[in-house]
């Protein structure tokens, strides 16, 4: 059952909650207990900006079972405006439109459905801007 772990991740999945190191400004997404850059243990809670750019990408054509009906599935590493990085699907576009450097906006979508009987898991995905 995935309900407990899904519920735990809601702050990150739903509103991009992250930790910002009060010493060196490193942004930890998800939040961490110790800064990997400076060793500080003090973080300020922030929410990442839902916009950024594509660092690199791929289009998954052979997917794990959960995503097998959604291929071709563009997925990218995205750098948010604060400089934090995350992996997210890029949706509502022709896969050919996805390119390194393009600007994206993060939106709220269903990510996994756990079959017809399980819980629906929501979170961030990206759409191309403009």
């Amino acid at each position: 059952m995935i309900t407990p772990r899904y519920t735990r991740e809601i702050p990150q999945r739903y509103h991009l909650e992250a930790g910002k190191c009060t010493e060196c400004n490193f942004i930890a997404f998800p939040p961490r207990l110790i800064c990997p850059e400076c060793g500080s243990r003090e973080f300020e809670q922030i929410s990442l900006s839902p916009s950024g750019k594509i660092v690199t990408y791929t289009v998954v054509c052979v997917a794990a079972e959960e995503f097998s009906t959604e291929t071709p599935l563009p997925i990218a590493i995205i750098e948010t405006d604060e400089g934090a990085r995350l992996t997210a699907q890029v949706v509502d576009c022709d896969p050919e439109e996805v390119e390194i450097g393009k600007r994206v906006r993060l939106i709220f979508r269903c990510i996994q459905k756990e079959g017809l009987a399980g819980i629906r898991q929501y979170g961030y995905k990206a759409v191309l801007e403009g």
Partner: peptide, 16 residues
């Protein structure tokens, strides 16, 4: 709706 859209995601975007 896209395959990842439902009443909840539509409501969230409209509400935002």
């Amino acid at each position: 709706p896209g395959m990842d859209e439902d009443t909840i995601t539509i409501s969230v975007q409209a509400a935002k």
